Computed example of a mutant assay.
Amino acid sequence: MAGKHTYHRPEHHHNHCRCSCGGGRFITFLKILIAIIIVVGLAVLILWLIFRPNKVKFNVTDAKLTQFNLIDNQLHFNFALNVTVRNPNKRIGVYYDTIESSAIYKNQRLQTQWLPPFYQGYKTTAVISCVFSGQQLLLLAGQGLTEFNAERVAGVYEMNMELNLRIRLKFGAVRVGKFKPKVNCEFKVPLSSDGSSVVGSVFESTGCDIDYW
């Protein structure tokens, strides 16, 4: 009698291969991603060490208010101010592509202007001049009205000016970024109708806050 032969089904390793191959690709991708992050991080660190960027500084150095009358909820105003912009960086220039300036009183926008763009070189100081004039609906009640009456008696008003910017930075010959910092300037300005300030009131230069994000 012929001997019995036992048949063994060959084992298949396709699923195991798929898992191994897929896992290998993922690990390779992860290694490449980590390497890219490290290279970019080192590049940023090297650039920072070379250029050592410092924040641009904004200050309201002069302001004149010649009209500020509230009649039937209509505010008639006329004031001008100068903002100095100091770039302290030795190797970084700044392109101010868009400059939107707004006059604000008691959290209410009085007027908005768009100023001409300009480039600011290394370690230089520029001056932004703004003139706001006209009339605007101004609704005051409660604390806001109380503060307005007190300021009218004192002849000194607390004002705000905002600058919404769109800038680019220049590193040597390279221009990078489209940043949108917001500058907020809070200052007190005396009312003057004849070119002179209220007795005992002198405008004081005031620094501005900058939010780069």
Rank of each mutant, 00 (worst) to 15 (best):
G93T: 10
I104P: 02
R86K: 15
S101V: 04
L70C: 06
A2I: 12
I167F: 05
P10R: 09
V202T: 07
Q111W: 01
V83L: 04
I104T: 01
P53R: 09
T98R: 12
L42C: 14
A43M: 15
K4S: 13
N59Y: 12
Y212I: 11
N54E: 15
A150Y: 04
I36M: 10
R9C: 14
A103Q: 02
L30N: 12
V189I: 05
S129M: 09
K90M: 15
C19N: 06
R152G: 05
S193R: 11
V56T: 14
L33F: 14
G41Q: 13
T112Q: 06
A80S: 14
S193L: 10
T6L: 13
C19E: 12
P190G: 09
S129N: 07
R109Q: 00
M159R: 01
N78F: 03
N89L: 11
R91N: 13
T112M: 04
T84Q: 03
I32Q: 01
N89K: 11
F179G: 00
I36E: 07
H8K: 11
L45W: 08
V56K: 10
L163F: 05
R86P: 06
L65Q: 01
T84K: 08
W114D: 09
G3R: 04
R25F: 15
V60E: 01
V199W: 06
E147T: 10
C17A: 11
F171S: 06
N82H: 02
R152P: 01
N184L: 06
K106N: 03
H14L: 15
P117A: 04
F79S: 02
W114S: 12
H5E: 13
R91S: 12
E100H: 11
Y119E: 08
S197W: 12
A63I: 01
N73S: 11
L139K: 08
Y119T: 08
C17S: 07
G200Q: 11
N107H: 05
P190Y: 08
A173G: 01
Q136N: 13
N59W: 10
L65C: 01
E162G: 03
F118M: 05
N89G: 11
K55F: 14
T84N: 09
L145W: 10
D194N: 15
I50M: 09
T125C: 05
G177T: 09
V198A: 14
K90V: 13
R166W: 04
E11C: 08
F179W: 00
T146H: 13
M1A: 15
F179H: 03
F58E: 04
H12F: 08
L49G: 04
N184K: 02
V176E: 05
L163C: 03
K123E: 15
C130G: 02
V198H: 12
L115K: 06
M1Q: 13
L30G: 12
